[in-house]
Design a protein around this nucleic acid. Sequence first.
DNA 1: GCATATTAAATTGCACGCAATTAAATTGTA
DNA 2: TACAATTTAATTGCGTGCAATTTAATATGC
Lengths: 155, 155
Amino acid sequence: MNMKEKGQESQLKLENFLCFAIYSTANAVTRAYQPRLTALKLTYPQYLVMVVLWEEENQTVTAIGDKLSLDSGTLTPLLKRLEAAGLISRRRDKADERQVLINLTDEGRAMKERAESVPIAMGQAFGCTMDEARGMRAELIGLRDNLVASLDEAK
Amino acid sequence: MNMKEKGQESQLKLENFLCFAIYSTANAVTRAYQPRLTALKLTYPQYLVMVVLWEEENQTVTAIGDKLSLDSGTLTPLLKRLEAAGLISRRRDKADERQVLINLTDEGRAMKERAESVPIAMGQAFGCTMDEARGMRAELIGLRDNLVASLDEAK
DNA sequence: GCATATTAAATTGCACGCAATTAAATTGTA
DNA sequence: TACAATTTAATTGCGTGCAATTTAATATGC
């Protein structure tokens, strides 16, 4: 085996894949949140939507989608489930009937308090210091922005 | 607002969530791979399975699942699609009929060469140095192992 | 003013992920 | 040797993600 072959082979080894580290860690995150969220009867993406709404109410589907990088194909059915669960309301904006405004119900607003324990418990599960978490978050967001930029360039 | 409230509020802000950084970066990775993989007519998880098989043939479903942290509920239909695409074969192990051995077809094996360009192109898209990539990979895997351990402890 | 373009959400179709269950084969164990 | 326990895939059901299309409302250009 010459050097070139050796170099290329290492490129195609799973253990060297940064993408797989991200992929498998993301799956592990979802699995780790699951037991903490079943008490709230939320899935992990539903929890993220609730976090966005706890920060700011009366948001459009697009505004929520921009923050979570999700489109209406994902959000519409998810929001309908949150509505069916009595946590949010969906109503057309009178001023612009194209838009749907999402608001918390009293029940959805009240859930915030019970949800406070979730990130605290998860902080334990991550098993890293706040500083390490901050560092990784910054690195990941940098990576994510690079990926988004490379996609934008391509079109 | 007192200090305690301020502290708790910051815990529930999306921008502070390490989990969301991982989640949204993982989604971005899948989207970024997509254009590179459509030439091979593979989805991103299918590509990962092929990577595992290019490293070692004649693996059971469980062996592949252990490497990718996926179960038969995910893998069985995925492997059937790869079989339908003519890239792999699935056959019961004669020595232990419970197991299904997955092998590459000639076509699947031949695809490896065309796939060599994918991680190289993605390296560009990530926009970080090899050393940075190695560092992040190690940090993510550490995090993932902590999450898995916390789940194991819970049961 | 009116046709065209754009925008927002919903819909459709497909492929994951994963919990839970099932079916079949093998292992262990009295 | 019987028979219970374990192991391996497959199956079922549900909730995402996302590309592509559709529908309805609004903005734009002539």
